[in-house]
Amino acid sequence: MKSIGAAVRDPGSTRRNKTGSWRTFKPVADKEKCIGCGLCYLYCPDGCISLEYDPDYDYCKGCGICAEECPVKAITMERE
């Protein structure tokens, strides 16, 4: 249906905008170390980390919060 008045009828459609291209450093996890605490999942400003720590690189802006906050230092930031 055509929308008028700048109404957007396509929920979640910012997914079309792949913010992964903003990234200069990329988080990489050592899954052996991961204790599954879920903090990275909760803290991610872009909601693009799954509970099993599989970052969605289409959207990850590379802010590094997950690496910084990981209590067991399982995540490192690597240059793209």
Binding site: P11, T14, R15, T19, I65
Partner: peptide, 11 residues
Amino acid sequence: LAPGHRACAGC
């Protein structure tokens, strides 16, 4: 809140 939004990194 879907990803792809235009917030600064680390918002």
